Amino acid sequence: MTDRSSVGEARRIAMVAAQSLGFSESRRSDIGIVATEAANNIILHARSGEFLICPSQSKDGAYLDLLALDHGPGIHNIPRALEDGFSTVGTAGQGLGAIQRLSDDFSLYSLPDRGTVFWSRFRETASLDPRPYGAVSIPMKGESACGDAFLTLPSKSRSLYMVVDGLGHGQYAAEAAEEAVSTVRAYAEESVTEIITRTHDALKKTRGAAMTVVSVDHERQVLTCSGVGNISSSILGGTVSRNMVTQNGTLGAVLPHIHEYSYPVDDRSMLLMCSDGITSKYTVSNYPGLQSRHPQLITGVLYRDFSRHRDDATVLLAPLGGDRG
C-alpha cells in the first residue's frame, strides 16, 4: 500500500477472493467496504503499509481474513477511535465503526509510534466456527505461487501441525510444498518420524523442502516434533519461549537420521511455527497484551515486524489449550 490507487486494488482482489469462496453478493459488498476502509486507513494515517488477503476453504466451510498492517503513529485511544464521528484527519469518522459492524470477527492491535494491525474475518456460513489458530502464508514479492504451505489437523485428543518451505521460491517450490501437504495429510495418523520419512520419499520427484511436523497429545499434555531444515518452531507460555530442535537436511534430497523430541505443554501453551522468510529474532513478549488476543491478529503483527520481505513467509500460531477470543 503506497498510494490511493492501492486502495482500489486491495478492494478488487478481496472481492475476487470472496467470490471464489462462494460468498453472496451482499457479503461481497460488505467485504469490499471493509477492504476499502481498512486500506484507506493505511494511506491516511501511515502513508504506506501492507494489506493481506487470506482466504481459507475447508470441509466445514470458507472464511476470508483481511489484515491491514502499518508502522504509522498508532492509535492512542482505541475505544474513542471506534466511535462513529471520531476522526483525526478530517474525515467523517465512519471507517473503524463500519469495519467492526460489517465483520463477523474484528480486532485491532496498536501501540503509539509502533503502528497498527487491523484484523477482519468474514465467514461464508454464519454458523462456521473455525478453530482459533492463526496463519499467514505470503509468496515472495513478484511471485504468484507461494513456496511455503502449512497444515492444521486439530482434534480433541491429538492435533497435528505442519509448516513446509519448498526449496527456493516460485512454482516449483510450491509444487514441492503441495506434495508435502498431501503426504502429511495421508499419513497423519502415523508418528512424526514416519510422516517425515514418507514425505522425504514423496519429495524425491520435486526440488525438495524443509519441513517440521508437530503432534500434540492433549490428554498427556505432550508435544512431539520432528523437523528437517530451517523451519523454526517454539512453544510460547506467558513470558517464556522454548525453541524446538530441528535437524539439517532437505527432504527429498538429504535425509539425516530422524529424531523425535518431546516437550511438556499445558492449556496456556501456544505453538509458533515460522518459515525462514520470518527472521528468527521474532518475539511476542515485547508486545503488551498481545498473547491474549486472537491468534490471527498475533500472526499479522509477527509477519509485519519480522518478515524478511525477500522470500516466501509463513507464520502459524496455534493455542494448545481452550478456545481464545
Rank of each mutant, 00 (worst) to 15 (best):
I13K: 08
L151R: 02
A62C: 15
V89K: 15
S48M: 15
R114D: 10
S120M: 13
V315I: 04
G85L: 09
D113A: 15
S191A: 02
D276S: 13
G22R: 10
A145I: 01
T283F: 14
S137L: 04
R101D: 06
A68S: 15
T283S: 15
V301W: 08
V181W: 00
V164G: 03
E219F: 11
D312V: 00
S120Y: 11
T250V: 15
G170M: 00
T199H: 00
G97K: 13
H257E: 12
L320C: 05
R28H: 07
I13N: 06
K59I: 13
K204I: 00
A35T: 09
S262N: 10
I298N: 02
S159N: 07
I13Q: 07
S275F: 08
I33M: 14
S215G: 03
L67A: 05
E9Q: 05
G49D: 10
E50L: 11
L96S: 09
L251F: 06
G72P: 12
D70C: 06
K205Q: 04
I278T: 06
A135Y: 04
S137M: 07
R310M: 03
R308W: 00
R293M: 12
T283R: 15
S120F: 09
V136Y: 01
G95V: 07
R242N: 03
I138Y: 05
Q19L: 08
R28D: 11
R242G: 03
